[in-house]
Simulated scan of single mutants.
Amino acid sequence: MKKIYFKLVFTFCLLMCTFFYAQTPTNPNPPGGVGGGTPGAQASPIDMYVYVLGIVAMLLIVFFTKKYKSQKI
């Protein structure tokens, strides 16, 4: 029963991911000959902190791994 439930939930999630998108795709060459992107446009704010977020994630993984490992007897 658990295998069937897992397969159904997995299939449902896979199908929903293909149908729903967080952002609609943009047309790089809109009709009328106008260019797609705007030069000099700001990047999204999270792009500036990708390296910092990666380092913080690794530090948190190490911290919680050691914390839970030390609690096991």
Score class of each variant (00 low, 15 high):
63 F>D: 05
15 L>T: 03
43 A>Q: 10
23 Q>I: 12
50 V>R: 14
47 D>T: 08
57 A>W: 03
9 V>Q: 04
50 V>W: 09
51 Y>I: 14
27 N>M: 03
52 V>P: 00
64 F>A: 01
63 F>L: 15
8 L>G: 01
29 N>A: 09
50 V>D: 04
3 K>G: 03
59 L>D: 04
6 F>P: 00
22 A>K: 02
25 P>W: 09
8 L>H: 02
73 I>K: 14
34 V>K: 09
5 Y>W: 13
55 I>A: 12
28 P>L: 10
66 K>R: 15
38 T>S: 04
27 N>F: 00
28 P>E: 10
6 F>Y: 06
5 Y>M: 10
59 L>S: 13
67 K>Y: 14
5 Y>G: 00
53 L>I: 09
32 G>K: 12
70 S>T: 12
26 T>L: 11
59 L>N: 02
58 M>K: 09
45 P>W: 06
41 A>C: 06
12 F>M: 11
17 C>V: 02
56 V>E: 04
35 G>M: 06
16 M>K: 01
24 T>E: 11
19 F>I: 13
65 T>M: 13
21 Y>W: 15
35 G>R: 13
47 D>V: 07
52 V>I: 11
14 L>E: 00
49 Y>A: 11
72 K>D: 05
73 I>Y: 05
11 T>M: 11
40 G>E: 09
12 F>Y: 08
22 A>T: 12
25 P>M: 10
18 T>Y: 11
20 F>T: 12
14 L>N: 03
20 F>A: 13
39 P>N: 12
21 Y>A: 12
1 M>T: 03
67 K>D: 09
64 F>T: 12
24 T>G: 03
55 I>F: 13
29 N>C: 05
2 K>I: 02
47 D>P: 00
38 T>I: 14
72 K>Y: 02
57 A>D: 05
69 K>N: 06
46 I>H: 07
67 K>M: 10
16 M>Y: 10
17 C>F: 07
54 G>I: 09
7 K>P: 00
4 I>W: 05
51 Y>F: 08
62 V>D: 02
17 C>W: 00
14 L>A: 01
25 P>F: 11
8 L>N: 04
40 G>Y: 08
73 I>V: 08
49 Y>V: 15
56 V>N: 01
58 M>H: 01
34 V>D: 00
57 A>G: 00
52 V>H: 04
66 K>Q: 08
36 G>I: 03
27 N>T: 03
34 V>H: 05
51 Y>E: 15
